[in-house]
Nucleic acid binder design. Structure first.
Lengths: 166, 166
DNA sequence: CAAAATCGCTTGTGCATTGCAAGTAACTTT
DNA sequence: AAAGTTACTTGCAATGCACAAGCGATTTTG
């Protein structure tokens, strides 16, 4: 759709760099689905309630891969499907998403689950580790045979296998 | 330009709420200028090196005010000028900007000053207090008579009166 | 094993947003 | 009084986006 190969940055201010990568209405929602909702396939992003158009989704996935925030690979047991995953660079976006969620919850009307929000502010390191383990742990391979296994956290609770906004 | 009065949210997911307010290439750059660069007037945002167009700037300032992230008031000694300021809601965006800056610095090529970045990760609370005091302290009134006075921090250094990306 | 369904896209088609250049009204400075 | 500044608005062309439909490869179903 749009070729973005050698677009020069408007500036190298880190905020501007972020905005040239994430400064649109959709990109971070895909990251949200990957990180919080265990959505790893094209159809899953289409199913999100914000209703992204398929051509936009296709474009954003391509850009995310160009920016090395996600990787794509074919599903091990179904050649039609593509398995999208966050790279370490992509997983590092978690704190940014936390701050967004906390700000929105404080200042706007949202439907985020309170327990998760509390962990974003008070138990950030453990939550981060959990999300990371959960993401890396549930490969397409393991998913194809058993339903996603939530990683138990150190308090013995279930892992972050919950939708972000109920 | 665009009327956005009663646009219903696509969802009440806090991330989506944020993206409907900030999900574009320009809005957070204005907040950056307000928070880090002591830029409080229309012409100042136009002068930023990302080169925002004046109609877009006008539109974004209007939306920021609609969302109660900034306030506008006439300059006390020059009726042509408008003084834009962050509200508390707007100042609360600082941690989000910190995370963006830290992510970009870690994963992309940027030109952010290292000392400031270090404080974003290691001295966040004090930096936050400084930025807040600095912003509230330098009113248009005081600016019109004396050059902006940086607020000294607890270590006796000069305040955050530095550009964000040199 | 043929037909139907699924999956990850791509291709139109219009409408909305953006970027650029130029203007303008209300001031202030010279 | 003339020239500059400031905060915008307006017009227009280019780009981006939303919506609907289609398509090739694969898997599932009867």
């Amino acid at each position: 759709m749009t070729r973005n190969a050698t677009a020069p940055r408007r500036s190298n201010c880190p905020l501007n760099v972020c905005l040239e990568i994430f400064g649109d209405r959709w990109t971070l929602l895909i990251v949200r689905d990957l990180l919080f909702k265990q959505r790893y396939e094209f159809k899953d992003y289409l199913a999100a309630k914000e209703k992204i158009a398929s051509n936009i989704l296709s474009d954003r996935l391509r850009r995310l891969e160009e920016n090395q925030i996600i990787t794509k690979s074919v599903h091990p047991t179904d050649a039609r499907r593509v398995d999208y995953r966050l790279t370490d660079k992509g997983l590092d976006l978690a704190p940014l998403l936390f701050e967004m969620a906390l700000w929105a919850t404080k200042h706007e009307e949202t439907d985020a689950p309170t327990p998760l929000l509390r962990r974003m502010s008070d138990d950030r390191e453990n939550l981060l580790a959990e999300l990371r383990a959960n993401h890396l742990g549930s490969t397409a391979e393991s998913q194809s045979h058993v339903p996603p296994q939530p990683v138990p956290n150190r308090a013995g609770h279930r892992g972050p296998n919950r939708t972000f906004s109920k």
